[in-house]
Design a protein around this nucleic acid. Structure first.
Lengths: 218, 218
DNA sequence: GGTCATTTCGTACATAGTACGGTAGCGTCA
DNA sequence: TGACGCTACCGTACTATGTACGAAATGACC
């Protein structure tokens, strides 16, 4: 009779539900009980498909990774890696809680592994030596993850409010932090400013750095 | 009679205790009760000095920031920024839980602000335009934070065990992940490999990129 | 020594994860 | 057709956590 009222539960449905809960309410809002409610089920039903909450969290991380476009080893490396970076950043922006999760979960899921593989393939095919590919990989992910960390830990909201925050900083600290005041007034508070735009600038610089690595072979 | 058996509690003592607990047992081990035990006090005593646990976590983040050497605006920018990057990475390595915390706490503490200010000062004094300094700042922190994220999410342990993990990956996935296998056998499993060494390589590349920003003025 | 402010604690409650065993709907075989 | 068992789901309850609330202990000052 279960199929009539709702689809039967699956591990996948659980993960998708967890993703939805985390996206709307943040990681803190994701409890077994809230997840069960989201799924239209009682809490303990979940435990038929996952051993514990940690397993759900591991699954979530992999879910996010699976949203990242894989680079194609046949394509031009710079293009492909650039696309992958943009895609990764977009995914981490859609799911700002993901970075914090990644820190604690050290068991890579299938999507994570595929991503590693595809990226390494693209680099190697693009003319990077093994060692250069290793260096490149560390740099790429450092930049993408680090940017995501900064983006999610920006004081409160998204783009627009930044101006407001900057104004407050200025008013409160003015004399104490002259350089912050300077950058706030002359840059951050300017109309059209969006921290997210920094991503493209840094990305191009990182890609240039990769080219250096590629040419010098490590 | 308290001064005989122990110093009186202070907000600072609480934060230092919390840092100790988190360092030895990870963030999960940091509970009000465990913290109280560490301090030789009953749980509710803590609440006389902090409003809630979140405030402790905010304090912890700032505590970690305070361990990062401030760059000196009078020094040569490349030298100073480099030192700051190394110092930041070292701090984040000492306190691997800090990155995950940073994601959620968006209220910067005094140490965080000082660090921002000193870094901006160094860049501006070093010849970066306002806009270039903004770009530079985003790039620097992205790299440092992102590297820390990667470092803490490395499968399990520190340096040495990496070789072991790589072997397992190889055995398990061999055919499925040829490029990962390649990099594992030819690089990661080589004696003396340490992921941490990647930091210096990426750091130099980032510093080169900063020089580009500086010269072109944004 | 009495009063008061400060600091510490005891108790208790809501919410979290989840162990354990029960139950209900389905297919299978006699 | 009915007994049985398997799978999916649920009810109850235990433990740990953050923390509200008010009591108690301590030290300062008259």
């Amino acid at each position: 009779m279960y199929e009539m009222t709702r689809e039967t539960l699956t591990r996948d449905r659980i993960l998708r539900g967890a993703l939805a809960v985390a996206d709307t309410g943040g990681l803190a809002a994701l409890t077994i009980r809230s997840l069960a409610t989201e799924l239209g089920v009682k809490p303990m039903a979940v435990y038929h498909y996952v051993a514990n909450k940690d397993e759900i969290l591991d699954g979530l991380v992999d879910q996010v990774f699976s949203e990242i476009d894989l680079p194609s080893p046949e394509g031009e490396w710079r293009e492909e890696i650039s696309r992958r970076m943009v895609s990764a950043r977009a995914a981490l922006r859609r799911h700002p809680w993901a970075i914090a999760l990644m820190e604690s979960r050290r068991t890579p899921g299938p999507a994570s592994l595929s991503r590693h593989e595809a990226t390494l393939a693209t680099l190697r095919q693009g003319g990077f030596s093994v060692v250069a590919a290793a260096h490149a990989y560390a740099l790429i992910d450092s930049y993408v993850y680090g940017f995501a960390v900064q983006e999610t830990s920006l004081p409160i909201g998204r783009p627009e409010e930044m101006g407001e925050v900057a104004r407050e900083i200025m008013e409160t600290f003015e004399g104490a932090y002259p350089y912050m005041t300077e950058i706030a007034t002359e840059h951050v508070m300017q109309p059209g400013y969006d921290f997210g735009d920094e991503f493209e600038i840094g990305r191009e610089l990182v890609l240039d750095a990769l080219e250096v690595l590629r040419r010098r072979g490590g």
